[in-house]
């Protein structure tokens, strides 16, 4: 990519999306826009930029979308996965010892790094899960993102952020410049397209819900509404994991923070007496003045 092309894309992204790329992020642009230009039947980034300068609004929109799709990496933020291994799964193993099944939902599954990170965590505790039925459901708004997740194919850059090298060697196969997560891990994850704004009761009930870094894009009322529906989609002794900058505090009493585990929540005890089926009034308590 020529420096003028890079500067053009950088400025365009800044103007249109607020995305602020530093001067050394050529690889990021290349890793996302080379596939995009091929898909558009173009030879590469120079031709792509040429078409954009000529006024192709649809290409420009695609470029902005490709570049602003939430950056996600394996074991992102680490802490939630420590919670998963050290707090959530030990309790699930006890609480579900008779049923021998665990259902996990990644509500913003994106390109698969989060569900596959959880799948790897579960693989690492294989011996304790012998005979268990393990379900990981990954949902996302974007079908395209889900296709990528299904393929489980990642660039060299993507597998180097957050993924210990031992896990890369153990759970991935190298195919050319890319790394593909092994079939047995892919088989652990089911993919469904889903808009969190819509009803998701058809997904059933979960023991664990990861809903990280997606609610931040919604306004307060929508957040409250989603929290309350998440609570209904959860076993009374389930676990909710939010992003580092997210909280239920001040929004709903459906969940309460898990002691000393940042970002980890459980349904409130009061919810143990479940609302009658069909009740549509969310039990919201907006803490005024908090």
């Amino acid at each position: 990519m020529t420096p003028p092309d890079y500067e053009y894309l950088r400025k365009l992204l800044k103007d249109q999306s607020g995305l602020d790329l530093s001067a050394d992020k050529q690889y990021l642009i290349e890793s996302r826009l080379v596939p995009l230009s091929r898909k558009a039947g173009l030879a590469g980034i120079p031709e792509l930029v040429q078409k954009m300068k000529a006024g192709s609004a649809s290409l420009t929109a695609q470029v902005v979308e490709a570049m602003t799709t939430n950056e996600t990496f394996f074991f992102r933020d680490k802490v939630p996965f420590d919670h998963f291994r050290q707090a959530i799964m030990p309790e699930v193993l006890k609480a579900r010892a008779a049923r021998k099944s665990v259902r996990i939902w990644c509500a913003a599954g994106s390109t698969g790094q989060e569900p596959y990170s959880l799948a790897m965590c579960l693989k690492e505790m294989d011996s304790q899960l012998a005979g268990w039925r393990v379900e990981i459901i990954a949902t996302d708004l974007s079908q395209e993102v889900l296709e990528k997740s299904k393929a489980g194919l990642y660039s060299q850059f993507e597998v180097q952020r957050g993924l210990p090298i031992q896990m890369l060697v153990k759970y991935f196969k190298q195919t050319g410049e890319f790394w593909q997560i092994n079939p047995d891990l892919r088989a652990m994850v089911q993919h469904r397209q889903l808009n969190l704004l819509h009803d998701f009761s058809q997904l059933g009930t979960f023991d664990v819900i990861f809903c990280r870094n997606v609610l931040i894009y919604f306004d307060q009322d929508t957040k409250i509404n989603i929290f309350n529906r998440l609570c209904k989609a959860m076993e009374p002794d389930g676990f909710l994991v939010l992003g580092a900058a997210e909280t239920v505090v001040g929004l709903t009493d459906a969940f309460k923070p898990y002691p000393d585990k940042r970002g980890l929540y459980r349904p409130n005890d009061s919810r143990m007496t479940k609302a009658p089926a069909g009740a549509t009034t969310p039990r919201i308590a907006v803490a005024a003045g908090m």
């Binding site: 990496f73 850059f157 180097q160 952020r161 090298i165 890369l168 060697v169």
Partner: peptide
């Protein structure tokens, strides 16, 4: 090469090209 390095006692492995984020992550 990665396997050989790990068996030989390497702790981590960065594939070039690399950037600050990758070094920090590793």
């Amino acid at each position: 090469h990665i396997s050989k390095a790990l068996h030989g006692g390497a702790n981590e492995y960065i594939m070039k090209p690399f950037d600050k984020e990758i070094v920090a992550a590793k």
